[in-house]
Design a protein around this nucleic acid. Sequence first.
DNA 1: TAGTGGTCTAGACCACACG
DNA 2: GTGTGGTCTAGACCACTAC
Lengths: 251, 251
Amino acid sequence: MELQDLMVRQDFNQKKMPLYLVISEALREKIIGGEYAPGEQLPSEYDLGEIFKVSRTTVRKAISNLVNQGLVISQHGKGVFVKKHHKTTFSLTNPLTFFEVDLARQGLTGKASTIGIERIEASTEICSRLNLAAKSQVYQQQQIISVDESPIALDTAYFPLEIGAVLAEQLQTGFTYATLERCGFTLKRAEIVLECTRADPQLSKYLEVSIGAPLLVYHYVAYTKDKRVVACGETLSNADRMCYSVVLDRD
Amino acid sequence: MELQDLMVRQDFNQKKMPLYLVISEALREKIIGGEYAPGEQLPSEYDLGEIFKVSRTTVRKAISNLVNQGLVISQHGKGVFVKKHHKTTFSLTNPLTFFEVDLARQGLTGKASTIGIERIEASTEICSRLNLAAKSQVYQQQQIISVDESPIALDTAYFPLEIGAVLAEQLQTGFTYATLERCGFTLKRAEIVLECTRADPQLSKYLEVSIGAPLLVYHYVAYTKDKRVVACGETLSNADRMCYSVVLDRD
DNA sequence: TAGTGGTCTAGACCACACG
DNA sequence: GTGTGGTCTAGACCACTAC
């Protein structure tokens, strides 16, 4: 019955679509169309195999496709469930805002937990971004940023020694920009690059996503009003849960 | 020999890593470390199976992992090759710049080919973004943006009727922002949201990426100085080939 | 024609979740 | 224990590329 429709579509498109694609597309439409509601469980791999008359391997390939598209999540021992997405927005609009402020505006609560802060010899790239001589020592801080108790981003920040030394204790808690300001480093400018990357096995653990899942990367260099670099770093966030907004005005 | 090292690492990590992960991590390190150079071909699936003493299915799972991480590209009938990444940067910095300008600065050449422009009834969301009454008619334009002869983004733009009518012919060629300006619609403000999504089968064809590949989404609403909305739309770009930059200054 | 990746099967065994 | 997804095998056949 369902299978009929699928075969028809396959002929209609004049293409030999592989079976797994026919199946993942069929499921995709049901998900997009709301026939499978967010949070709902799909039939088991075995049942899908029976329904579509294919092997379990093929069903798994189809499901893997849906997982890659961010439509479903597969839970070992439980089943495959339609994802509920809720994206958090981080505003890049002037004046420089803070993540807590953005979160509060969206009725969310965030937390930054420091997983490490240490003095290291900076890489060539970091030295250049911080405008320091090669092989300078810097403070490196890593934080997991959680929203509503689930990890959304991993922030790695680098500070010149004289700044990091002052902040080392305070940086253990709270968000980086906010801590800097509280300690008298008023931010005047931030240079930002946004790009996308994919989770390697280590990041996939920190952010609780699958290997290869897309991550948004927020590269930053922050300056005080005397044009001194106070920090640089990267925030890697779960691309399914974060977006950035900007408003550009021209004089 | 190699296998030995891998097994040792597996024990060392105190984790039962699945074979495909051990293999994809081994290959990943060689790629990152430059042992496999960009553009170089990996051993065939059959050979990798012999090398690691596993079935071809397992080798394929490992390679699929690398593809998902954007490290390699698999070419039917030819082989698996290490990717060469070259990202194009699009600046969001004030004043509003144009993609051509950015490209030229990077020594690249871009082209926008219109694949369709038609008058349609706008969705509720588009009407709201264009500040029009529900079910208004609008012009919808779709363009493939290519850099150095390969597709990098799909832009879908919506224009109110009175603007679209003026532009319909000219919009057939050239970049949207530039065409608007040339026709006397000076842009004063753009509201932008950046997020990440994944390629569905249709987008995967247009942008020549695999299904589920990450795409950067640039949502925009553009205003003239009399606060009139002249256009809105989305630019979906290959996340492996595009990034966005912003500079924020605070008064 | 030979070599490569792409699809698919049938079946085995393991690990996790839940009652 | 039962059911679920996770890993892995061995082998078949197809489609694309290159010579």
